[in-house]
Design a protein around this nucleic acid. Structure first.
Lengths: 230, 230
DNA sequence: CGCTGGTTTGAATTCTTTCAAACTATGTGG
DNA sequence: CCACATAGTTTGAAAGAATTCAAACCAGCG
């Protein structure tokens, strides 16, 4: 097992013994494709683009990836961020409908989609995992639709910070890998509005901001009520 | 084959001979569950709610269905509308994360999810169709995220009208089954903004509005450039 | 130390919402 | 078939939220 694989396992299931039965989709990818390629990718690199064929599935070992859609007029929307331990690029269509880019330097493993499919034909559990993964992405997208459709700037930012904190499992202290513009493009706001809203949170003691890429969620109840009291 | 089934088939694949090989997910549902229940549902009725168990899958025969998510504070977002011939309620989670309501009077057929799953175990094509269906929903949601994240009111309305026209396949003359408030809740706008934007389109001769629930897309190129020139 | 890219702040503008009222369609009972 | 009640739509005016434009600021780096 490669170093990257060990890292992945450590991130994803810290309490499980290495070598047990495959449980997650990632487990199955590892087991069925032990020779998968580990890649070091520099910051702001494109992993795949809209229109690329979907012949690879990726697992993120370290760093952060943003999944973007671009418009004819050059506007950008960030559908979601990928965190370490997560799988991305798993799509049923023959072509990607989004672009994946690294936010900072990143390490990832690319698996063959064809091999995954062949493996899945005879494996009910894997098929279920694939369906679950797509289904989870759908649920996430629909939740995000609710946010963009109903929430104002403060509510969106609170929702974003809380979800990120939960996914990173880092308690109240939050390391923001992405810049303000990325947050803006994810929440459908301008970069200035993101800055001003963070500042407003700061002044209301909802958060403190030790440095640009670090946020402490000081008043979780208040943030939560902002996020859910839609 | 029931009358409802015949109607469905007519809507969905108007040019195919009845009785051919099952192709779509709906074909398979019909074939595997010929005794499925046809239901007449009055306007503004709830078909299923957030939290209901996902033991049924539905096919819409006639009418329109809206798929909504509600927030703690009572706000509502319409994720999408379901048109005749389409399947809805197909979710992997054990509980629905949205509410399905009829817009006007509707006719639908409900199929057993459990039977579908049992049928799918031995049928590769059906499994593919299920995965495709979820995957299509994901693509739709992500496209909608782009719209809500990047577009202003005029662009959103143009996108909405064009997509609806395409799905209904009715050329330029468009019958709007839903009210203005529904459109607003789908596009993340207020009802007043929807009205004013339609009026603006009218004055610019992009559309004409013979009656409240009828819109003629008079200038398709202009509408298209609004929708894509994001 | 000075660049460069990214962030923050301010002021003016624009877009959308909110609030209020008028208007229109639809359906019901007389 | 008409009158009325009701739900839904449209319009206007004022308020509010977010964006745009501009400039200042800051941090990391050669």
């Amino acid at each position: 097992m490669s170093v990257a694989h060990q890292q992945l396992r450590a991130i994803e299931r810290p309490r499980l013994v290495v070598g047990g039965e495959p449980v997650t989709l990632l487990d199955h990818l590892r087991q069925s494709q032990p020779g998968a390629v580990r890649q070091d990718v520099a910051r702001n690199s494109t992993i795949f683009s809209e229109g690329d064929s979907t012949d690879c599935v990726y697992a993120l070992v370290s760093g952060t990836v943003r999944l973007c859609k671009h418009t004819a007029g050059g506007r950008r929307h960030i559908l979601d961020f990928v965190l370490p331990g997560e799988v991305f690029g798993l799509v049923e269509q023959p072509e990607h409908s989004m672009t994946a880019e690294t936010v900072g330097d990143a390490v990832l493993i690319s698996y063959s989609r064809g091999q995954l499919d062949r493996y899945a034909v005879a494996n009910l559990v894997v098929r279920r995992r694939i369906l679950s993964a797509v289904s989870d992405d759908l649920a996430t997208a629909q939740q995000q639709l609710l946010i963009l459709g109903c929430q104002d700037a403060r509510e969106r930012l609170a929702s974003f910070l809380l979800r990120l904190a939960e996914r990173m499992g880092a308690g109240n202290r939050l390391l923001l890998p992405m810049g303000r513009q990325d947050i803006a493009d994810h929440l459908g706001l301008s970069i200035e509005t993101v800055c001003r809203t963070i500042r407003q949170f700061c002044r209301s003691s909802l958060v403190s901001v030790p440095s640009t890429h670090e946020i402490v969620l000081a008043d979780l109840p208040a943030l939560t009520s902002l996020a859910i009291e839609i």
